[in-house]
Design a protein around this nucleic acid. Structure first.
Lengths: 238, 238
DNA sequence: CGCACGACTTGTATGGTACCTGTCTTTTTC
DNA sequence: GAAAAAGACAGGTACCATACAAGTCGTGCG
């Protein structure tokens, strides 16, 4: 689907800072070597997402500061815990350099047999386990981290010390059944539903630096996302 | 049996990371030096295993990659499905006026025995069940909606016609085990993990107008949240 | 100033092309 | 005789090219 890919590249262009008016449909068409119809379908897709708006006779515009607008108020489980006054604790279960899983290598931009530091950690709230977290960073970065470091500080506190400036975070949320070992650590029956969040952190240059997987027991946790409604008239699917 | 061997090699290729669209039947035929019929028999074998799906006139796709729904940008399930290249459908299962569940009555600002319109709907992606959605609106608003309305349009398209302007949306995400009836509708085993989203839509005046519960089979769906890195308590835990 | 005109834009519709899957029949091969 | 190959056709989808309607804006003329 050509227009989906085109929408992806335009979306990237928008989230990485472009604002104001977009080039006209005809210009985008010649730039990407596609017809105007295809450009329109891509733009309509982005309009359904609330990322852009169109004014007839004028042009297409990036919706006013869409990133901040739509993503400003994401509350994580950890934030809620702190707000509730719980004391957060960490217990490092594993700390190992090993070859990266293929998907992790891919997102971190490493070769298929690239080496990473994997830290598996149990997050505690008032000494009760509530999240099982696995973090991967490239071995090059991990070389500067000690086990004590990751036990007492967050990765977000540590990385700036080594010249890495976090830029943006993409969090993918899904659900899964608790596998035996995970269930044991979280203190829930095996097979019970978990909230699984994969969080990829990028630095200022757009390169992925941290891949993390958080697993929460479902009965304890809920993520809350708030965003303003963006009017999307004329959605193509009725 | 030539096509069984071919199915094996294609399966290997898929499980080792290939995703998205497969080459066309003709291309696979020339690549492996077999006829199109043989390629088809192999692919049909993999389809029976649930590994791939075919869309007429388009091509074959690996079935495993979930639909990623971007929170904060996509406002409807339909938009996310279209972005993934699937065709969206709806089937209304229940359409009833009844007394509101207490939590719904509370969020909608109704008295404890207030009346609401409840619509339970199955969302389809390429004619496969994808999401089970229950929507509650106050009886006062629901009085203007017909069953055909909610079958053919989204609530977000319908409400502006009756003077309601959506303002903001708060979405709460959690996981749960599929209860029997829900599992049946979604075509998954009972007890399998679901992604459960409760979405409360407020109008311009800050009054809650829609309460909706979306349930997705976990293996089909992932929610995606992107936010710029800020040194807030919520983003500190990594 | 007022106004028409033209150059641009988005919105909409249509015909045509290339390619895809789905299904069938016939021929070849082992 | 069964499996595979080869071919043909139907039904669909995505994309392109084109045309035209409708809206906006700047320019220049009277």
């Amino acid at each position: 689907m050509r227009y989906v890919q085109l929408a992806d590249t335009i979306r990237d262009r928008i989230v990485s800072g472009t604002s104001g008016a977009l080039p006209s449909e005809a210009e985008l068409g010649t730039e990407f070597g596609v017809s105007r119809v295809t450009v329109r379908r891509a733009l309509e897709l982005l309009r359904d997402e609330g990322l852009v708006t169109a004014r007839r006779g004028v042009g297409w515009f990036v919706a006013s500061d869409p990133v901040r607008q739509s993503l400003g108020r994401v509350t994580t489980v950890e934030a809620a815990l702190e707000a509730a006054g719980a004391t957060a604790g960490r217990r490092v279960l594993e700390f190992a350099f090993e070859t990266a899983p293929t998907d992790v290598a891919k997102t971190l931009g490493l070769p298929v047999d690239g080496e990473v530091l994997r830290v598996t950690r149990l997050n505690l709230a008032d000494d009760e386990p509530f999240a099982l977290v696995t973090v991967w960073v490239s071995a090059r970065l991990g070389a500067h981290l000690s086990r004590a470091d990751v036990e007492h500080s967050t990765f977000y506190d540590l990385l700036p010390l080594h010249g890495v400036e976090p830029g943006r975070v993409v969090q993918t949320i899904t659900a899964e059944a608790a596998e035996g070992k995970t269930a044991h650590h979280l203190g829930v029956p095996a097979g019970s539903p978990l909230l699984a969040c994969r969080r990829v952190t990028y630095d200022r240059h757009g390169d992925a630096v941290i891949v993390a997987e958080h697993r929460y027991a479902a009965h304890l946790t809920a993520l809350e996302v708030e965003f303003p409604f963006t009017q999307t008239p004329g959605a193509r699917h009725g």
